[in-house]
Every structure is written in C-alpha cells, then in structure tokens.
C-alpha cells in the first residue's frame, strides 16, 4: 500500500493504463493525471488523489457548520465556508404549517447564529439546500468555533474516528466537526476547552506528520500533569 502512495502536484502522471479516475484526477489519453496538490493512491481498478488544499465544495449528506448571514421572509442564508451560500428554507425549521405572515424567522435563528446542518441537495444549477431536520442538527447554543482547512477534516477525524476520540476522551469536550472545516468545541471545563482547541490547531498545522495521533495524545497528557 505504502509504495503506491505518492506526493503529487497538478499535472503529475500518477499511472497509465485502465484505471477508473476518481476524485481529483483526470484521464488524458491513457494517462491518469492529478489535478491538485495531494497524495495519490492507486487501487486495483481506480486511482485518486487526496487533496491537501482547496475550498470546501458542498456534497450531499455532508454535515456542515453554518453561520446565518441573512434571511428573507421564507428562508435563511448561511455562510458554509464555501463559494456558495447555504439555503435553509423556513419550512424546514417551523414545519409544514409555516406561514410567512404568522411566523417570524428571527425568533428561531438570528444572523450570526451557528447551525449544525446537513446538505440536503446540491447541484450545479442552484445554491446548496441544507436541512436541520434531523437528530443532533440545529442551532448551536454553546461552544467555541475553530476554523481549520477543509482538506484537513479527514485527518482531524482520523481512521475510524480515532483522532477525534482521543481528543474528546482526554478533555471531556464535545466536538462537532463540519465537513466545511468549521469545528465547534464545547466543554464545561475551561482548561479542557483550551486543550481541545489547541489539539485541533495542532492537527491542522501538522496534518502531514505521521503518527500524529500519538503526538496529540502526548501533548494532551503532558499538559494535564503540569
């Protein structure tokens, strides 16, 4: 596995032959070419590049953290740290019997509020539709917002969530990670909050380092003793 992984930049030929191009690669003739800076991975029949840069592109079913920018009489607009604004219809919050006359949108969400939401629909023709009608979704009442690079979100979660579990267990914090690179940390213990935020920043800055989970663990433990 390891010998198949390579650091690539745009234009680098990852491999030639009958591979299916997946994310961040294109097929040019019979060459599989990387379109971004990242780490290439070749599987039995496909090739892909894990990007190390770039903005967040909404994908259906992603959990994101959004910030309310404005609202009309029927919907809210949310900043989701992307090139598009998230569109949250009022019906989603008030339910089916929503009436534009009777219900005041600002009674539920004001601009500046943070919301945990899911991308319900996203296509090329219009701004992504988001929903908060699900368990664990909705307005975030408490916690601190930490911004990291969206391309480093998978690293923060870690393999099968190991990284995030390590941080949560060591600090008793509750961490909500949006795929868009916004992370909300809430913790009753102020020291734990600071440590969790520091650990998240550490992952953001040193995402390329191997064995990062252990290093984060060390950092969290050493701080606890002193």
């Amino acid at each position: 596995m390891d010998n198949k992984r390579k650091y690539v930049i745009p234009g680098d030929v990852i491999t030639t032959g009958p591979y299916r191009p997946e994310q961040n690669v294109i097929l040019e003739g019979n060459k599989i070419i990387s379109t971004t800076i990242g780490i290439s991975e070749i599987y039995d029949d496909s090739a892909k590049v894990i990007s190390l840069t770039g903005k967040y592109l909404p994908k259906i079913n992603d959990l994101v953290i959004g910030k309310v920018i404005s609202h009309s009489s029927l919907s809210w607009e949310l900043d989701i740290n992307s090139c598009y604004v998230g569109f949250l219809p009022a019906q989603d919050v008030f339910g089916r019997d929503f009436s534009a006359h009777a219900d005041e949108l600002t009674s539920r969400l004001k601009s500046g509020d943070l919301v945990a939401a899911r991308i319900a629909n996203s296509d090329r023709t219009r701004d992504p539709l988001i929903t908060i009608a699900d368990r664990d979704l909705g307005k975030i009442d408490s916690g601190d917002l930490v911004e990291i690079s969206p391309s480093k979100v998978p690293r923060l979660i870690g393999k099968k969530g190991t990284m995030i579990q390590t941080i949560e267990n060591a600090t008793d914090a509750i961490i909500t990670i949006g795929q868009n690179g916004w992370v909300v940390v809430s913790c009753d213990n102020p020291e734990g909050l600071l440590k969790a935020k520091k650990a998240i920043q550490m992952v953001n800055e040193q995402a390329h380092v191997a064995n990062l989970t252990d290093q984060v663990k060390d950092m969290l433990e050493s701080k606890g003793e002193s």
Binding site: I9, P10, G11, I33, T35, T36, I37, T53, S151
Partner: peptide, 11 residues
C-alpha cells in the same frame, strides 16, 4: 493557483 487548490490539468 495550485496553492489555492484550483483543479488544473497541468502546471
């Protein structure tokens, strides 16, 4: 452009 993560066919 590559640094910004804009997809590119080549440099």
């Amino acid at each position: 452009l590559a640094d910004a993560g804009i997809p590119m066919r080549d440099m």
